[in-house]
Design a protein around this nucleic acid. Sequence first.
DNA 1: CTCGCTGATTACCCTTGAGTAACAATATGT
DNA 2: ACATATTGTTACTCAAGGGTAATCAGCGAG
Lengths: 196, 196
Amino acid sequence: MSIRLPASARREQLLDVALQVFAHQGYHGASMNDVADAAGVTKPVVYQHFDSKRDLYLALLDEVGERLLTQIAKATAGATDGKHQTELGFRAYFRWVADDHDAFLLLFGSGARRDEEFNDAVRKVTAQVAEAIKPLITADIDPEHQRTLAHALVGLAEGVSRRLVDNGVDFDPDLLARQVSDLAWAGLRVVGRKIS
Amino acid sequence: MSIRLPASARREQLLDVALQVFAHQGYHGASMNDVADAAGVTKPVVYQHFDSKRDLYLALLDEVGERLLTQIAKATAGATDGKHQTELGFRAYFRWVADDHDAFLLLFGSGARRDEEFNDAVRKVTAQVAEAIKPLITADIDPEHQRTLAHALVGLAEGVSRRLVDNGVDFDPDLLARQVSDLAWAGLRVVGRKIS
DNA sequence: CTCGCTGATTACCCTTGAGTAACAATATGT
DNA sequence: ACATATTGTTACTCAAGGGTAATCAGCGAG
């Protein structure tokens, strides 16, 4: 038998381990047995803490999304001008990717995207990130256009990150943030100048 | 019994139908029976044309990726200056999304992304799109930075599209292309001016 | 020391779905 | 008309994996 743990500690451990397992094998690729094994425990233990596989996965998506959002919020809080804010936002995002690798894979490496409920969870995150970005965009263009641009920037960060993560390239989040925010900020300023 | 079709026609039909089925239900969500049913036929018929489920799915990814790439290539061929080329590229992409909806879902709505082999197929497509974009980026920055920016633009298009497709918003691809390429082109020009 | 509570295990059930073997129906060329 | 290739169908096998019932083990309180 394995080491006994108090319920709350076991739950934490399971979330921790499950994140790794799902990130590497995907939702369908990983069985509840895999999760249990990785935790050094047997399947029913997992079911003592989570009602179903979906339940466990949703809990993870929530936790992980929360982490990303708070980090961005914290990072951008101190900035005043838009340019600086843009860079800090991207920096927080890329730092998150760099040192919470598995979290990125879970959320955007997907496996989530094809399930109604999972996709909702992911969308909620991207939508909130987009919301955080919206203030950077000049207010004098129509709201739909604003939303488009906000999501464009979110996608941009995702695209850049995915390439790096997929290819196992290791990268400097801060440098990346500078490079990407240069592009983004310049773009945003120009868009503001024309009434289109 | 259903209508008899010559082998090649049946194969085409199966690819056609399978695209719809997988796009809507995802790889794991759709069974081979689902595909067969949708084609008005029984499972073994599908296996007469494709060795396995994976095989069928890979064939689809290939076909669909090909379609996207050729459309972008065709669209950008006629352009001379970078700005125009950027807009035409995005326009081709968004048009592809608009009227080959299922193809977008199959490729980027994912379910692909978590499988080694599937992910490779998708990566090959995004990498080629990025390659097509690279000429637009000033040559006097380092190659890694160039690649980053290229993938940034690919991600950007994907992010914008995903939001629209997910929310079922219908959109004007040409307008979208103008809005997005304004942002992108302005960004690219500025990046060229600094040696960073 | 033993009762009982919490944490963990063994050994199952049962559905789903990929893949196949054997057979039936419809063309087509002679 | 009849042999033969081609297209389809019925009816299965088999493994994987989500989920559960019954049971066991350790540990603190009385």
